[in-house]
Design a protein around this nucleic acid. Structure first.
Lengths: 187, 187
DNA sequence: GTCTATAACTTGATAGAC
DNA sequence: GTCTATCAAGTTATAGAC
């Protein structure tokens, strides 16, 4: 049984701490206490606090972008693509809710040039997502609404799953959310 | 022409500052600079930093709860109530996006007992929102999905409007979002 | 009401012994 | 790698002169 390297324990504890208190309010002394170290000892494993935030943000950005690329490769059908995207967001949120919360809520505390790089990645993701919506509208598969409104409504509609208490997640979550977003609330 | 009292200028500048940097990363010196004061002079107008956050959070909580109460009084029909709720969220978000961002993202930095009070207000709001959904399902007006999934999907789907650049908001925003949430993406 | 000065404390990060 | 000791800078907030 392989033990986790201390560096990884620090990253995981940091993600939980940033989730609970927010990046700015989380201190290195808080973090050290959670991994049974003194604050100064953390610096044998990491170079600085923001380095941890960088890893969380860019690892998750990569996950979303790789997932999107896989979907674009698999099918060209806008409806299939949209369904797969919804599933991608749900899967990532369920797989590592803590990390996703930090990625979603704390990225703006990145320092330059990382902040700029991160925003670029996000813009790229949104642009390709919007393109799928637009294509679906052009093909008459999706109802014609403002593409940005549709994009942000769906993107944010998928941004609460990581808050869910894992023990009470309904089994058919994928089906229900997909159904809500694709066919709406009304019977 | 009535000039705004300095206290109000401070609250407005604080809301913008909290929105931009987050509550924890925003310092009283930052805030003072924005209203052309020294940090210590702020304390002639407010008692402490957190007092500003309290006002922002509870003023907005009150707005949502009063809006909900008005809707409950106006109609008993679940579909009409849901449509009105969607409009309420959009109206509030468009009316004061800065304040709403802070309300949404920074409330957890409230100190006790305000934090507990705030969470109670939010639970109450969610409970009454969920009840509307449940009644609609019982009456066969809404599709039967997990009520919590429907509740949080809609609540968060309405949580991006305050980020929108006011100059590019489409005129038929209410119609489009309502249509997306009630009837979904698919033609 | 606004200022200067400062108290009292927390922050991220480093130096150097072990 | 972990510790103690420490630093420089930043934090909220107060005291008291004007």
């Amino acid at each position: 049984m392989a033990t986790k390297p201390k560096k990884q324990l620090i990253y995981e504890a940091a993600a939980r701490l940033f989730q609970e208190k927010g990046y700015s309010a989380a201190s290195m002394r808080d973090l050290a206490e959670r991994v049974n170290l003194k604050a100064s000892s953390l610096y044998s494993h990491i170079r600085k606090k923001e380095e941890i935030l960088q890893k969380i943000c860019f690892d998750n950005a990569r996950r979303f972008l790789q997932g999107l690329a896989a979907i674009e490769q698999k099918t060209a059908d806008p409806l299939e693509r949209l369904e797969a995207l919804i599933h991608l967001h749900i899967d990532i949120a369920l797989d590592d809710p803590t990390s996703i919360t930090v990625f979603n809520d704390e990225w703006r505390h990145l320092e330059e040039p990382y902040l700029g790089d991160f925003v670029k990645l996000r813009r790229d993701y949104e642009q390709r997502f919007r393109q799928i919506i637009q294509t679906g509208m052009d093909q008459g598969v999706f109802r014609k609404v403002d593409p940005n409104t549709a994009l942000f409504t769906m993107l944010t509609a998928l941004r609460w799953i990581h808050y869910w208490n894992p023990t009470q997640i309904p089994g058919n979550l994928h089906t229900e959310i997909t159904s809500l977003l694709l066919r709406g609330m009304v019977e």
